[in-house]
Design a protein around this nucleic acid. Sequence first.
DNA 1: GTGAAAGCGCTAACAG
DNA 2: CTGTTAGCGCTTTCAC
Lengths: 334, 334
Amino acid sequence: MTIYDISEKAGVSIATVSRVLNGSKNVSDKTRQKVLDVIARYEYTPNAFARGLGLNTMKTIGIMCADSSDLYLAKAVYYIEQKLRANGYDSLLCCTGYGLESKIASMNLLLTKKVDGIILAGSNFAYEKESENKYISDAAAQIPVMLLNAALDVPNVYSVVSDDFTSMYKASLQMLESGIEDILYFYNSNSYSGRRKLAGYLAAMEEKGCSADALTQFYQGSHEDIHAMTDYLKQLHERGLAFHGVIASDDILALAAVKYAQEMKYQVPEEFSVLGYNNSMLTVCSEPELTSIDNKLETLCQHLITTLLGVLDGNEMPKKTVFSGEIIARGTTR
Amino acid sequence: MTIYDISEKAGVSIATVSRVLNGSKNVSDKTRQKVLDVIARYEYTPNAFARGLGLNTMKTIGIMCADSSDLYLAKAVYYIEQKLRANGYDSLLCCTGYGLESKIASMNLLLTKKVDGIILAGSNFAYEKESENKYISDAAAQIPVMLLNAALDVPNVYSVVSDDFTSMYKASLQMLESGIEDILYFYNSNSYSGRRKLAGYLAAMEEKGCSADALTQFYQGSHEDIHAMTDYLKQLHERGLAFHGVIASDDILALAAVKYAQEMKYQVPEEFSVLGYNNSMLTVCSEPELTSIDNKLETLCQHLITTLLGVLDGNEMPKKTVFSGEIIARGTTR
DNA sequence: GTGAAAGCGCTAACAG
DNA sequence: CTGTTAGCGCTTTCAC
């Protein structure tokens, strides 16, 4: 069933059918109804490919994320997909992993499929070296690129971020002022926001005159293996590193720290404090429950979509938007 | 840059360019190389929409899931997307929520976009009432439909499931034989696999001559609010219901049960046992860690994709495949 | 082994 | 308000 069949059965031209299909004003009510009836009777739906060819768009957005099964990214993907579809766009999902090569490959794939825009969900897409961000600016030369939790000053790329530096700075200060000086910073990512978080911690430590040299610990194992993370902390202890607080770049690392404290028989939070990040479901899994930083993911996603839609509509939109995070106090800090 | 431009610059016809693009045998090596050179020089990529129009496919599969931020579904989506892309297919993601109406709407959307197949990830898509599965058979009249964790005997729909009945039956028997008779069954879904799990528990209870009447508890609150789940169990206790074991249809419900046990000062597993389902990341979050049933999600997904690809290739494929689950013993059972 | 030409189904400019 | 027509860019017979 094509537009020709419909036009014939309705006794009008294909142009008229196309008009009613696209809600054009220039059709008489009578004609419109006639066409609509035929369309309904034959359950006709326009061919999306032909439409795409004519309009040069199929109203789809590419979503790239390293790993959609990651607790935080899964939520991001969920929010983004919902809001896109509510606005008539479909989502082409690409889980890229954390390697640059595969990110580039996915990017090219999406470009080939002629999506209308690309959303990079997760700060790991923005590298420190400028040359490694070339794939982003290249893509932005063709279509708008949206960065969630990362920022890049390049034409046609728009950034929406949480102020991770300040969040971490404030939280660190708070823990320091609660009397803990040997706070370990436990992180697993050197991504854009990863670097900002670390900087926040370091700024607070420096301000209070505490040395962070040995206390800044990068964990590079699996993102899901809590036991390995706990073991890592135990090894630090065995090697003589003293710490009575942990600030983690992610709730799961924080959870590992709580486990570590339990194994060490520390009273939490009396003798040992822990702070997580993302305010995920994991915060209520530990005992005591985890204090964590909420970076307002849904708000970020909402804003990101609004901005993207604006750009696609040809409006001038802010290149970078920053939201504030919030410390959600629970049982692991005092 | 179109195929015409390339044909002109290479001094051949568009038919020839199309042939080398599609790897046709009928091109001389010299011509092929010439065309390839031009393509490379101008970084030409064929227009996907035009291609789709001609071939009537854009090599895309629709993935529907109720909530891609759900721990289990997120993993499923991840595996599926990976395996699809490895085979040259893209994934159009649709998070439908749990209502029938919105599932139907999403289904129609995907059909309109002319995807090559649809994957329903999650047992909640198959309803008990046959009439409520009409949207699935309707879709299957057009393209293959794959069911993950659900089964339906309808032409052109293929099912891949874990044997939830047997897994639950065995696990229940095991807990009963460990000496606990008052096992509460705590569940939050009447989906296809939800019904199978419940049946497994009931079969074991009956076999051991235990009444399950008051012990079968359906929880209908939020899927993420552990506190509410724990409260629900406390209320049951306050109303006089006695139970010293909990078998849950999902790890998060099981985690709530562990919390309940802790608040009740029960020793786990000596005085109180808990069993979860899905063997998710949550199992290592509780103290002691959660015994859970692994339903081999990655295997299921792998098989589902293999089957789908086979169907798309025109091969005869099994209508229903069943895998066995496995009990992963940890600290909450004895 | 290569080219000419007829679609694929729709949109939009133009004419009336 | 409605119809005619020329694309959109590619695939695929059918000749040569």
